[in-house]
Design a protein around this nucleic acid. Structure first.
Lengths: 129, 129
DNA sequence: CTCTGAAAATTACAGCTGTAGCAATATGAA
DNA sequence: TTCATATTGCTACAGCTGTAATTTTCAGAG
């Protein structure tokens, strides 16, 4: 099961992930999140704190500087775990069933479909090995 | 956005969906859910009540009989809405990105992959029309 | 060292959720 | 009609979550 990161917490994580592996200072993180979300600074700090408690963020503090935050797991690792969890819970682990539902009323864009086609081709090729 | 049905509430809904469009009596519903989950009767009744409040279940009561519950939305409709919501929130609407993550460490079974292939072929065919 | 402002940490609240007890109502037997 | 049992409805609690205020600590200027 993926680490439980709520939708609000994801707003913070997405900002840290976008900054790359060096992380962000507190000032930069708040400077990015607050305008996007309309939250107060207190709200954002609580979410940062909870993310630290659950191990998604870590902070360091340089002498003379404020805290700096970095992600403790990558965006891809979390998305992989989370999406596998969704497919397991809702579709018994069957990714095709998920795709059938997602595309049931809303066909993918040409780019999306092309990428899907390539994924299936790659999986087919791997199977033949 | 799909109606918010929690994981515990899903245990109840899956049981009602499995019973088909005629619904289930309270006794049959409790009789199916309690052994599967280990919950108390009170717990299950609370979840049924909350599902009724949010419009996922409706109840009828025949003279001389107890309540009978039926789903107010189909399993497929809910799964479609829910999975589209997940793809939108986590992958910007790109289903191929979700498939890439789901299959990243865990390849689909031969049956699952065959079904995925047919889905993509159908979507390709629809595109050509 | 003191004081002020900034930053971080702690506390708080309301609704949601999982879980279950208790009160009220309905039903059937005597 | 009365009583006992079954069923339904209401209440409760703790942790989670979104949101934010308040308190504490830190840092820099004088």
């Amino acid at each position: 099961m993926a680490m439980r990161i709520t939708e609000a917490e994801m707003r913070v994580m997405e900002t840290v992930w976008a900054a790359g592996s060096d992380g962000l200072s507190a000032a930069d993180l708040l400077g990015a999140v607050l305008p996007q979300t309309g939250w107060s600074e207190s709200t954002c700090r609580t979410l940062i704190h909870r993310l630290m408690l659950k191990g998604a963020l870590a902070s360091t503090r340089a002498p003379g500087g404020g805290a700096s935050y970095s992600a403790q797991l990558t965006r891809d690792a979390w998305l992989t775990a989370e999406s596998q969890g969704v497919v397991d819970r809702l579709f018994g682990g069957q990714v095709a069933a998920m795709v059938a539902h997602v595309t049931h009323e809303r066909r993918p864009s040409p780019d999306d479909l092309a990428r899907l086609r390539r994924l299936v081709a790659d999986l087919d090729a791997d199977e033949d090995d």
